[in-house]
Design a protein around this nucleic acid. Structure first.
Lengths: 173, 173
DNA sequence: ATTTACAGGACCAAATTAGTCCGATATCTT
DNA sequence: AAGATATCGGACTAATTTGGTCCTGTAAAT
């Protein structure tokens, strides 16, 4: 666990797709659905969210579509996640002081704010430009090892491919 | 969103509680439930998971209970999260190469592994000793500002307090 | 005017998560 | 030896969240 949601996952795929387009034209929902192989209604929904969050500009009407609101290097992972699933907040108290009724007795708000800040810093440094850069994909791969407690074999799969009611085989994104 | 699960949240509270105990005695489930004000069955369940993951040692029978398996400084946030909700993996492909059927067409495994690594690094550096240290709580608070996209007012609350079917007021953890 | 495409939500089904409970086993006390 | 106290492991249910679809309205181009 500790995953981003599927919608966010898809959203980043879509953003990466848009980042690779060299022209400045608007790309419509159907086109992006074809390119990413993601279900059209889902793509549409995600594009709307990204637009509302200010990551995309939209053009209505015929010849309309979407384009990045700013250069890929200025769109961080934090922004992408925030756009699609709300602020990066590992706990309620990390960003909403006063929301938790136990706040007075539980002395963990401070630590959580620190932890959350550390995660945000890490995610802030990585941008859409890094993600969409094809050479970056090969670099940085398996270049570190982090021992995991409880890394059991129950990989449980799932989470990355859209549900396909007809086949047990995930058809992937 | 992008939250840890409630169980993990509780688990860290429990671990912090155990870390503050100065004696080397085993503390039982009921005692910890009283101290943390968390529902007894939930505390029990969490303690079992933490034991299975190797973060706690358990003692059976009368006078039995739980104690930390090692010093708080040697228990990182990554380990705590991993123990209760599986490995820290923002996407499937970040830790399970081959699990996603789109892996060949989607060029994002590399980036995701990097992103995941960055988050793990951040979470690795913070330990139970930091969390349980009362002076650390005051420090590190509001000492940074990270602009968030989409930080709307829909705080939506919730997630931090156990469900109480009888009262609409969350009774907190 | 018609066509194309975004905007915003309502809505349902499926999957996850939270929380409870039970029988079995191990250990201490008397 | 018997009884009391705790953990162990897992089954089970209810509530919440998420994923995904669809429908009505609005804006722009032809």
């Amino acid at each position: 666990m500790f995953r981003i949601s599927r919608i966010t996952d898809y959203g980043i795929v879509i953003l990466a797709q848009l980042a690779t387009q060299t022209d400045d034209a608007a790309h419509n929902s159907r086109e992006l659905s074809d390119q990413t192989q993601l279900p059209a209604p889902v793509v549409s929904k995600i594009l709307k969210s990204l637009t509302r969050a200010g990551l995309l500009d939209s053009v209505r009407g015929s010849k309309g579509g979407y384009r990045l609101a700013r250069p890929p290097a200025q769109i961080s992972v934090v922004q992408m996640i925030s756009a699609l699933e709300g602020p990066v907040a590992m706990t309620e108290c990390a960003i909403h002081p006063g929301a938790c009724s136990m706040e007075s007795s539980c002395g963990l708000q401070g630590p959580w704010q620190r932890i959350n800040g550390a995660v945000q810093d890490a995610l802030e440094k990585i941008t859409l430009a890094d993600i969409a850069d094809p050479t970056a994909n090969a670099r940085g791969r398996f270049d570190r090892f982090v021992p995991l407690v409880g890394l059991d074999a129950s990989g449980s799969g799932g989470h990355a491919a859209p549900n396909n009611p007809n086949s047990k085989e995930p058809r992937g994104r």
